[in-house]
């Protein structure tokens, strides 16, 4: 029935070549809702990770080519391939130690491929469930700073990550955090009537603010900041924070917010740092820390916390965000000093 009768799944087979022989697939790693992931060897023998854009609910494999049975889907798929390429192009121009880098980008077999270096380290998702791996307050603070710094870069390009969870964060050997570029751009189309929230997504709901999962209209830098703070919250307390939807439901029913604040209850941490996390996990977007630079600013030890609150209040009052620029410059200086 199939062009290649030996094929048992839709993944590309081991030893398939791409880009005219430049990459040879050496290992099939796994699938996500928008990709198949492989390891491959380049022509000079380097190992790389390759992400193939593949939407399982639309695409089939015919030979090595991607086939889309429904005409209407084909249109949607093509525009999503363009989005994928656009986002990945941004990533190739980023060169940060806290973002996994993109090495190559090409179209083949009717879809797009992103070649990444294989980040060395362990996924935070694996470490977080391992009881023998304890993070010290110093390590946690430094992870928070690394993540905030990668957000400064991503947001600086006008992009949102939208899918920051422990499965998208790599901890390298020296303990620093690297954000993996699996951007949540390809979220399901909201025009459809039906959808499944699997158990995997349910656990992701603990890290995502309400507006990322349900209310597309009001997303912004603060949405990613919530996710980062939620991951850090998990590291501090050993449990993920209450899911944002449960928090919304409680507040709607006039019950107390099930979120347990960090401030004042973790003696080993600087209270300023804990308060910064609490402020980053404000339930409603408008009351939340609204930029990565602000997050870095209020986490920092060098700065008087109450002063930043005053400054933030002043920003709200003024029509031109002069103070905001002030914050930005000060944080930049801080970064340079490090």
């Amino acid at each position: 029935m199939q062009h290649s009768s030996s094929r048992q799944t839709d993944e590309l087979a081991v030893s398939t070549t791409l880009q005219g022989g430049e990459y040879t697939i050496s290992d099939i790693k796994g699938s996500s809702n928008n990709s198949y992931n492989y390891h491959a060897k380049t022509s000079d023998g380097t190992s790389v990770a390759i992400k193939e854009f593949f939407l399982r609910d639309m695409c089939r494999r015919e030979g090595n080519n991607i086939q889309i049975p429904a005409k209407a889907d084909a249109k949607i798929f093509n525009s999503l391939v363009k989005t994928f390429l656009r986002d990945a192009t941004f990533l190739t121009s980023l060169d940060s130690e806290h973002l996994a880098s993109v090495l190559d980008l090409f179209e083949e077999n009717g879809t797009a491929y992103m070649v990444k270096s294989i980040p060395e380290g362990e996924l935070l998702a694996d470490l977080i469930v391992d009881p023998s791996r304890k993070f010290t307050p110093k390590q946690i603070t430094s992870i928070a700073n690394d993540l905030a710094r990668s957000l400064v870069e991503v947001h600086g390009f006008g992009m949102l990550h939208r899918d920051i969870t422990p499965s998208n964060i790599m901890i390298t050997k020296d303990g620093s955090a690297v954000l993996l570029p699996d951007f949540g751009t390809f979220r399901e189309d909201r025009s459809n009537a039906s959808r499944v929230v699997s158990s995997v997504l349910q656990s992701a709901q603990h890290y995502a603010p309400f507006e990322l999962t349900f209310d597309d209209a009001r997303q912004g830098d603060g949405s990613d900041i919530y996710c980062v703070a939620a991951v850090v919250y998990h590291l501090i307390t050993g449990e993920p924070p209450a899911a944002s939807l449960d928090r919304v439901a409680a507040v709607a029913a006039n019950d107390p917010d099930p979120y347990v604040p960090l401030e004042g209850s973790h003696k080993k941490f600087d209270d300023r740092f804990l308060k910064a996390m609490d402020m980053s996990m404000e339930l409603f977007y408008d009351s939340r820390v609204h930029s990565a630079t602000e997050l870095m600013f209020i986490m920092s030890k060098d700065i008087d916390f109450d002063e930043t609150r005053r400054m933030k209040r002043d920003v709200g009052k003024r029509s031109t965000p002069l103070t905001h620029q002030g914050i930005f410059i000060r944080v930049k200086n801080l970064l340079l000093r490090r």
Binding site: M58, A70, I76, E188, N192, S194, R195
Partner: peptide
Amino acid sequence: KPSFMRTASVDRLTPVDA
């Protein structure tokens, strides 16, 4: 039945794998 997650395109009814 409406389609599962992403789109509800009518010509998904093409029974390619039926």
